[in-house]
Structures are given as structure tokens and as C-alpha cells.
Amino acid sequence: MGSVELIDVSKTFMLRVDGAQQTVRALENLSFSVSDGEIVALIGPSGCGKTTALRIAMGLDAASGGKVAVDGVTVIGCGHDRGMVFQHAELLPWLTALENVMFGLEMKGMRGAQLRETAQRYLALVGLQDSGNRRPYQLSGGMQQRVGIARALAIDPKVLLMDEPFGALDAQTRETMQAELIDIHARTGKTILFVTHDLDEAVLLADRVVVMQHGAVQEIMNVPLPRPRGDLEALRGSAAFTETRYRLWRAINATDH
């Protein structure tokens, strides 16, 4: 099982501008849920609070109001039930790829031969079985992000949270990574919540897209594309994709004035 719910989540923070205190409301009564095995995309213009929402779901930031529940149980702070993939991978530069994956597992309490074995298996899952000894600076951006995904998946979280995971990659690498994520999802059945600003990515990967505006849900849109989505290339050319993408574009731009 693995569902995650944001219930009435608010976030305000203080900002000092020219000596005057300002209260910024980043999120206002934000509610949505991701059910077991589902992929949900959070999309919206920059500053709409999508990353803040994800960080609160992870527990890296505390909500000012409302709560986050995983499988119906309210969670406070970070936990092994959620695995985080950061925008810029954020691998520890002094560790090898394998050791980076092992780090997360060690924090979960895994020791001994099982530790290395498990880390190796997840590196293989992202196609890096032969690059375990490399350090992050010896890996390309796409490879670094794969290690980041392996690190998060290895702890076997109920939910995978991804903050613009492919946003920093070039277009070609991004497409490869999207296909791999679909593949990983098909194999592991993980619940995934990811933030993106890329319409194509949201439509291709997600079952539902949460469109945010000014810290609140503007619209939640179903993506009527079949699963499994093996062939992303064919999907891109399909009428269903084009039509959904257009609807999403209109939803986002309807809010943007």
C-alpha cells in the first residue's frame, strides 16, 4: 500500500522586505491525494507553491496548518515511508554511486552483506550496475539523477516524491529518463508524486495532474491515456496526448492572469 494525502495544508512565512515584515501565504488550504500505485503530477506557474507542497509532503518543511497522511496515518517530519528525489540529484560528492545508494539504506538500519547487495540491485534497476564505483563528478547529469532515484527507491518507500527530477537535464536525456521512470513504475508499482513545469512530462507520466495557482488547487485533471504506457514515442504522436496536453495548457493559462 502507499497513498499520500494533503489535507487543508497551509503554509505562511515571514519575509522582511525593506525593513517591513510581510506575511507570505505560500499555500492555502491545499488538499489532494495520491492513491496507491498512482502517478500524480503537480504543475503550475513558478511561485504557485508546488515545490513547497512537495517539501511539506516529504516533511522537509513544516506546514503552518493542515496535515499530511501516508496510508491514512498522519506523519510529522521525514520518514522512511517517503523517498525523496531532489531536483539536482544532491548526491554526496565524496561517496561513490553505490555508497550513495547505501547511505539511504544505512539510515534505515540495514547492515552487512544485505546492504551492498540491495544497493547494487537498485543501481541495476536504474541501469547503472557497472558504474557503482564512480563518484558523482564522474557521472553525467542523467546518471546522477538515476542514482538519486535508486537511492530513494532502495529504502522501499510507500511513496516516491520527486521535485522536478528531470528539469535540469537536456531534452534528450529527459525523454530517456521519462521512459525509464515509466518502466520503473511498471515494475515496482510505486506511488509517485512529482513536481514539474513541463506539460508534456505531466501528461506522459501522470494518471492525474494537479494544477496549482496561488498556493491552492486550481483543477485536478485526469489523463485518459492507457497504462502501461510502454511506448512514449508513439504516445506523443497520439491524438489523446495532443488533446489532453491542450486541455492542460488551457487549464494552466486560464489561471494565469
Binding site: 521525514c78 520518514g79 525523496m84 531532489f86 547511505f103 539510515m107
Partner: peptide
């Protein structure tokens, strides 16, 4: 801060964050 957050996201205790993230990053 992002490296510290890696520690926090994987629920590393403060002592582990200090020894395994802060110390090497400060070397």
C-alpha cells in the same frame, strides 16, 4: 543546505549528519 536535507530526508540523526555530511563537506 541541500546536502543537509539529503540527510534529513533519509531520517539521519544529527550526529550522523554531522559526521557523514557536514564533516566531509567541510574538509
Amino acid at each position: 543546505k541541500s546536502l543537509i536535507e539529503v540527510g534529513r530526508a533519509f531520517v539521519a540523526p544529527d550526529s550522523v549528519i554531522l559526521r557523514r555530511i557536514v564533516l566531509p563537506a567541510t574538509l
